[in-house]
């Protein structure tokens, strides 16, 4: 779990984009941990949301993840 969380945060910090689909996080984690499964990655992403390190970004129809403090972080 901790390894996955680190992989997600490293990706979120280094990516050129500021918002990511879940599949982007999945690919980033699987680069470091090839056997990681989607459900485990989701648990790691949810833990980061609860720790307030990641945020959700929703258009209403689809949802993305973002790194708190990077990109759009407050009401616009």
């Amino acid at each position: 779990m901790e390894e996955m969380k680190k992989a997600i945060l490293d990706f979120a910090k280094s990516s050129k984009k500021t918002k990511f689909y879940f599949s982007d996080l999945e690919k980033a984690v699987q680069k470091v941990i090839p056997k990681a499964k989607a459900r485990e990655i989701k648990k790691a992403a949810t833990a980061l949301i609860n720790e307030e390190k990641l945020i959700y970004f929703s258009t209403g129809s689809s949802t993305m993840y973002g790194l708190k403090g990077r990109g759009q972080t407050e009401d616009h």
């Binding site: 949301i49 929703s58 258009t59 973002g66 407050e74 009401d75 616009h76």
Partner: peptide, 20 residues
């Protein structure tokens, strides 16, 4: 309307749709 955003309730990724 500007549609979408980061607003929500803690821990939930759905149920709230930001609109400005």
């Amino acid at each position: 309307w500007k549609h979408g955003g980061i607003v929500g309730v803690f821990g939930y990724g759905g149920g709230v749709i930001g609109r400005y």
